[in-house]
Amino acid sequence: MKQIVVDIRDDGEVRIETKGFSGPVCLAESQFLKDLLGTETARSLAASFYQRGGVTVKRHIPLCG
């Protein structure tokens, strides 16, 4: 099931977590909340972000140079 979980702490800090999405669509699906609540100050991507249709997209990362 696709879910957007919004944790709103007593000190006013907001943390948005998307669940059940594959690939970068999660960013678009939750963008409306970020736009209406304020400014995104940090973001971390989970492994499923790099999946397309259940297949992990491998990328080569330059380690030096």
């Binding site: 006013g12 800090e13 907001v14 943390r15 948005i16 977590e17 998307t18 669940k19 059940g20 999405f21 594959s22 690939g23 999660c26 960013l27 939750s30 909340l33 970020k34 209406l36 609540l37 304020g38 400014t39 995104e40 100050t41 940090a42 973001r43 971390s44 991507l45 989970a46 499923s48 972000f49």
Partner: peptide, 14 residues
């Protein structure tokens, strides 16, 4: 889980 964002709240809606 796909991604996690932290948001700094701005009050724009009365």
């Amino acid at each position: 889980m796909s991604h996690i964002s932290k948001i700094e709240v701005a009050i724009t809606d009365l």
